[in-house]
Design a protein around this nucleic acid. Structure first.
Length: 495
RNA sequence: GCGCCCGUAGCUCAGCGGAAGAGCGGCGGCCUUCUAAGCCGUUGGUCGGGGGUUCGAAUCCUCCCGGGCGCACCA
């Protein structure tokens, strides 16, 4: 693993004192730049051990001071040159390429039935899935984004029937689809389903979610018999069942109805899992919490087919709830009582929409008050972060060709900013490992926070330390841009 | 009934084994100087509750309470 300056320092300290060392930033800068709890982690009197470590550690050239504190922390104060070097290593790829063994990974996301425009709820799937995909790419994996398009099935039939009804000048059926978009589609010739899918894809492109491939259930259908032949099945009561319960699932799943030879949903799942794992080392599904029951059966499908079920990864995110003046609104496409992603983006903008939907952890239900969304977007922290980026761009536009380069002690605000930037690689590593992209916006706010403070108090252009400060600005800008891009948000040069 | 997720500041949420946080809201300050979409100060919390593990728990285990989502020969 290639680490940054802080990782290397931890390594050096570890070798010096003969044990694994992690460095963390103390809660208060009065405790120094970094602290280690190494003395608390193993036998002996922690404070005595800490005192011994502190004595050894000051031998390192980067370490200016080492103090024992609290129950046995060793607090470190580092030299200016450590920070100057730390900034120097922040290039445009800083934090990336951490994958030890890059894989071909498929991330399947959204995959909404094309029976209507994409909703805010499905947008969360895209915002989350795409951000995870971006993280994996940044780590060095070969990532492919896929949209599974269910072109058969009952919902499609109902949808087509609704459009047909309007074309005949009738009302859509009771269990059909309503809304202005159904009437729009009725005015266009031919099958409304592909037209709808195209509109969905356009909306998602605007949302900065782009797909590498689309798969229709109809394409998978020919592969179903062969896939089923490879798994453990039995016949009972006119139905062919998959013995998924022997492979970790709650219960067995029906595959085929003998009467009409029709295949049931899980049969396509089995074929699809195989389709994925024949092409990719890892298949990631991004599913809403209403589908969490799928985890067991998808992994079982992989295991029955003879694959390592670990190659199937199911990411579950909690749902989006809409309220309007405190009153719950039900997201039902059929009733047309939804908030469409296009309208949401019109109202608050693409950047705020992406930020909003990825800012919360996947395990957290998102509440959106549609009445407050537009108003609140004016105060969205995304602008705070973008503004820091734009401010830096402003400085860099005015930077001289040969900046002043006098040696000067670093200001505390400069040190804070460097330490913040030094956290970036581990933030990215953790976010990738845990499939938790919300760590990026959270971290980006802290970077912006440190930068705005620095900007306010420390003059860059015209100062004696102009060169270092310009380097620090550039490094900050790179980290901010990377954070924003990893969650699909623009990093503007001007605001 | 069973399974998964959540319960942290007035509101929306980060943090998920080491020294309680952010945004918004409230109150009070700061623009001759690289963008005030900014900065500073202040207000604000038995981290749902009980028990346990640990030198150390918001974080791990367990029970309870409250909320969301699932548990189809539908997709």
């Amino acid at each position: 693993m290639r680490g940054n300056s802080v990782d290397r320092l931890a390594q050096a300290i570890g070798e010096l004192i003969g044990r694994e060392v992690e460095l963390e930033r103390p809660s208060d800068s009065k405790f120094g730049d970094y602290a280690t709890n190494a003395a608390l982690r193993g036998g002996g009197n922690p404070r005595e051990l800490a005192a011994k470590y502190a004595e050894q550690v000051v031998a390192l050239p980067e370490v200016e001071r080492a103090d024992v504190a609290g129950p046995g922390f060793v607090n470190l104060t580092l030299t200016d040159s450590f920070f100057v070097d730390a900034v120097a290593e922040i290039d445009t790829e800083y934090g990336g390429g951490s994958a030890e063994s890059p894989e071909r990974i498929q991330v399947e996301m959204v995959s909404a039935n094309p029976t209507g425009p994409i909703t805010v709820a499905s947008a969360r799937n895209g915002a989350y899935g795409d951000s995870v995909a971006r993280l994996l790419e940044f780590a060095g994996h070969d990532v492919s984004r896929e949209y599974y398009w269910n072109d058969a099935g009952k919902q499609m039939d109902r949808f087509r029937a609704s459009v047909d009804a309007i074309r005949r000048g009738e009302q859509p059926p009771e269990d059909g689809y309503q809304g202005a978009y159904v009437e729009d589609l009725a005015r266009i010739e031919g099958d409304p389903v592909p037209v709808m899918l195209e509109k969905i894809v356009d909306t998602l492109r605007r949302f900065r979610v782009d797909f590498d491939s689309f798969v229709r259930e109809a394409e998978l259908e020919p592969e179903i018999p062969d896939a089923i032949a490879r798994i453990d099945t039995y016949d009972s009561e006119g139905t062919t069942w998959a013995r998924t319960s022997s492979y970790g699932d709650d219960k067995d799943r029906p595959l085929l109805r003998s009467a009409d030879e029709s295949h049931l949903y899980f049969a396509a799942d089995v074929a699809y899992v195989r389709h994925k794992l024949e092409r990719f080392a890892r298949a990631i599904y991004v599913l809403g919490a209403d589908h969490h029951g799928y985890v067991g059966r998808l992994k079982a499908a992989a295991a029955m087919l003879g694959y390592d079920p670990e190659r199937v990864e199911v990411l579950i995110y909690q749902l989006v709830h809409l309220t309007s003046g405190g009153e719950q609104r039900k997201m039902s496409k059929r009733r047309g009582d939804v908030v469409f992603l296009d309208d949401f983006m019109d109202e608050i903008g693409v950047d705020a929409a992406r930020w909003y939907l990825v800012n919360r952890g996947p395990d957290q239900t998102i509440e959106i008050d549609v009445d407050l969304a537009a108003e609140k977007s004016q105060k969205n922290p995304v602008y705070y972060v973008q503004y820091a980026h734009a401010r830096i761009a402003g400085i860099l536009r005015n930077a001289p060709a040969s900046p002043a380069d006098a040696a000067a002690p670093l200001e505390p605000l400069e040190r804070d900013l460097v330490k913040r930037l030094a956290e970036f690689p581990s933030i990215v590593r953790e976010a990738t490992k845990r499939r938790g992209p919300q760590a990026l916006p959270v971290y980006a706010i802290k970077v912006a926070d440190d930068f705005h403070r620095f900007y306010h108090d420390v003059r860059v252009l015209g100062s004696d330390a102009e060169r270092f400060r310009l380097d620090l600005c550039r490094a900050t800008q790179r980290v901010l841009a990377r954070c924003l891009h990893l969650v699909g948000v623009d990093a503007p040069e001007r605001m």
